[in-house]
């Protein structure tokens, strides 16, 4: 048996160190670097929320971009000043019940999580009966449907024009504050009986069911919680960028999160946190690849692509090397 005191001391020390680090960063670094650190915090939340669904419960969902879109739009619409709304919705006025609302950031973030979580619940209830690859394609489909719907609901989301002028509430403290809450929540959830049930479902659904675990309830729960945090992270992202449009929430976004989860290890909280930070920083650090001027034999001027080539190669390599290390369910016997 491990002593209960020791790991938590380490965690507290880590937490304090991180807070001090963040404080120093916010004091001494330039705004670009601070922005990257803020973004890392958001990706920590995203990575953990996907890890809950894909890593701990062993489902394979590719719907993250959709839930982020829901969260981002909720925050965007709720926090945007009334005058700004009139400017944004010049094609078609916004639905009257939302025209005169201007919420604070915290309630808007919570609303984002709740709306996304509800969507996750409604979507999950019918779809989670499916197994791996069908689930992957169905959730991917839902994310696409959400994107298409948002592109067409002019009076609710301003359609393809997107929303501009969302107040920039997100700062380093908001993003990392949420990240810490997510880490704590995940650790709490996994240690409890629910976490045991999730792991059991991942290891062997049939065995888990015969041990009396309600598969459906736990799957929907894990999916809804994951969607909740994806929604919150989407909201943070909206308030960081200030501008959102439906095309931001394509499958590419889900791919980035999947990369974080795979690199960090499916079902590994600490690993996910580290890989979220590493991937976010690398995404920025490797930006030079996209702007690479001249390699002598090939001209790549400002081509966004090289960076993602590198990242997709990393993903494939990790999967090829880790192979059995990645947990999964159905093995050929």
């Amino acid at each position: 048996m491990k002593s209960k005191g020791k790991p938590s001391v380490i965690l507290v020390v880590l937490l304090i160190l991180t807070i001090v680090g963040l404080f120093l960063a916010s004091k001494f670094l330039d705004s670009y670097k601070i922005r990257i650190i803020t973004l890392s915090g958001i990706y920590v939340t995203l990575g953990l929320s996907m890890n809950l669904i894909n890593g701990f419960t062993g489902m394979f969902s590719l719907g993250h971009a959709g839930f982020m879109a829901i969260g981002a739009y909720t925050v965007g619409i709720l926090t945007m000043p009334i005058s700004m709304k009139e400017m944004n919705f010049f094609m078609q006025p916004i639905v009257p019940c939302l025209a005169n609302v201007e919420w604070g950031f915290l309630p808007a973030l919570l609303a984002a999580g709740i709306v996304a979580g509800l969507a996750g619940f409604l979507i999950g209830a019918p779809v989670l009966r499916l197994t791996d690859d069908y689930l992957a394609i169905a959730t991917l489909g839902f994310a696409e449907i959400i994107r298409v719907v948002f592109t067409n609901t002019q009076s609710l989301t301003n359609g393809a024009l997107g929303l501009k002028g969302i107040p920039n509430y997100t700062n380093i403290w908001w993003s990392w504050g949420v990240a810490f809450v997510t880490i704590w929540f995940m650790a709490f959830l996994i240690r409890g009986s629910y976490g045991k049930a999730f792991l059991a479902i991942k290891e062997d659904e049939v065995a888990a069911r015969s041990m009396g675990i309600n598969l459906f309830k736990h799957k929907v729960m894990s999916f809804s919680f994951g969607s909740f945090f994806a929604g919150v992270a989407g909201g943070l992202l909206a308030a960081l960028l200030g501008t959102i449009d439906p095309n931001m929430f394509r499958i590419t976004l889900t791919f980035n999160i999947l990369l974080i989860v795979v690199l960090g290890g499916l079902g590994n909280i600490g690993g996910t946190v580290v890989s979220a930070v590493v991937v976010t920083v690398m995404m920025e650090a490797l930006r030079f690849l996209d702007e690479s001027i001249n390699l002598g034999f090939i001209q790549l001027k400002g081509i966004p692509g090289m960076r993602m080539v590198v990242f997709s190669m990393i993903l494939i390599l990790v999967v090829l090397i880790k192979r059995e290390g990645l947990p999964g369910k159905t093995k050929r016997v």
């Binding site: 894909n54 394979f60 795979v262 993903l315 494939i316 192979r323 369910k329």
Partner: peptide
């Protein structure tokens, strides 16, 4: 496992 190969396919 099938999930692994699916991730490779996405990559």
């Amino acid at each position: 496992p099938r999930t692994t190969i699916l991730i490779s396919a996405i990559g």
